[in-house]
């Protein structure tokens, strides 16, 4: 088991290096000059040139990348062009907010979707199943920023139950978490249903029934555990989509997370901040996938025994 986890962590390293390289080069395509941005419009030619030299902006991109990585390994992601504060401090301040938002959203989706998916599968073609699946498909098709606006209109502006934005206590988490959870709830429900349908047709389900195992236990013990294997894959992928969705949801609800930080930084052409945000997002996604793979090994003995 430890061997398996170590192996998975080692596999993450080249991918993360690749991510930094890729993102660094994409961002370096940004037109405009960082030095003149930092110094503002009144700066003289000489002072701009001086700062460029000092920041190493005249070096080839690859040299700049190596320097960036050197700093990154020491835990330094540079300074914001716009505020001058370190990227680290800004991200450290914002990251917990995005974490709380996305984790509540994924928690909410799993909590809702797995039971609905299971019931739909065990009552295939029933009204519950048909209506549930249509709602799920609509759920997948709704853009989160629009759903967010509708929820604000209904529950904040009309009913006044929740704040329309900002981050003041638990109550302000509810609308954005729901908004973010809708699409992933829908797609995890669909996956759970289809993998349950696949599983309940397997021979070992018949074996269990032939032993005299009751219907409920067949579903809960024999079918669900097998059906969760594909469902967990989708939960991992959904987490990625959710992180992306956080950018939009945070914008709609003025939620001070990294997503909103990233959008603001793009608008301000604050490259180090954009770079830092994307890398943190990718890292978070990779860690989630790592956790998913470990969960896998716990559920599926075939994986565990390959590495023991």
């Amino acid at each position: 088991m430890t061997k398996y986890i170590l192996r998975r962590i080692l596999m993450m390293i080249p991918v993360m290096l690749g991510v930094t390289l890729l993102v660094f080069f994409i961002i370096s395509l940004t037109p405009g000059d960082a030095a003149s941005m930092i110094l503002g419009q009144e700066a003289t030619e000489e002072s701009i040139a001086e700062l460029r030299e000092e920041m190493g902006l005249n070096d080839p991109t690859i040299v700049q990348y190596v320097r960036y990585m050197g700093d990154l390994f020491q835990g330094d992601m540079g300074n914001s062009y716009a505020t001058g504060k370190t990227v680290n401090s800004e991200i450290a301040q914002r990251f917990p907010n995005t974490f709380v938002l996305t984790v509540s959203a994924i928690f909410l989706s799993v909590l809702i979707s797995i039971p609905i998916g299971v019931v739909s599968a065990t009552r295939q073609y029933s009204i519950f199943d048909n209506v549930g699946m249509i709602i799920a498909l609509v759920g997948i098709s709704m853009p989160s920023f629009w759903t967010g606006l509708l929820l604000i209109i209904a529950f904040s502006l009309k009913l006044g139950w929740f704040p329309s934005g900002g981050m003041e206590g638990f109550i302000s988490l509810i609308l954005p978490a729901f908004t973010l959870a809708i699409a992933s709830t829908a797609s995890i429900t669909r996956t759970t249903r289809s993998s349950m349908l696949e599983v309940i047709r397997q021979d070992y389900i018949n074996t269990a029934k032939a032993k005299g195992v009751t219907r409920n236990v067949v579903i809960r013990k024999h079918a669900l555990k097998n059906a969760l294997i594909p469902a967990i894959t989708v939960i991992g992928l959904e987490f990625g989509i959710l992180l992306g969705g956080a950018v939009l949801t945070e914008t709609v609800f003025s939620w001070p997370g990294i997503g909103r930080l990233m959008v603001e930084s793009i608008q301000r052409k604050d490259t180090p901040m954009v770079l830092g945000s994307v890398i943190v997002f990718a890292l978070a996604f990779s860690v989630v996938n790592l956790i998913i793979d470990i969960l896998y090994a716990f559920i599926d003995p075939r994986i565990k025994s390959n590495y023991s």
Binding site: M16, G18, G240, I241, G244, M262, V274, V278, F281, A282
Partner: peptide
């Protein structure tokens, strides 16, 4: 490793 929409935003 980069969520699709974030990659698009970055580009």
């Amino acid at each position: 490793a980069i969520p699709t929409i974030l990659l698009a935003i970055t580009i």
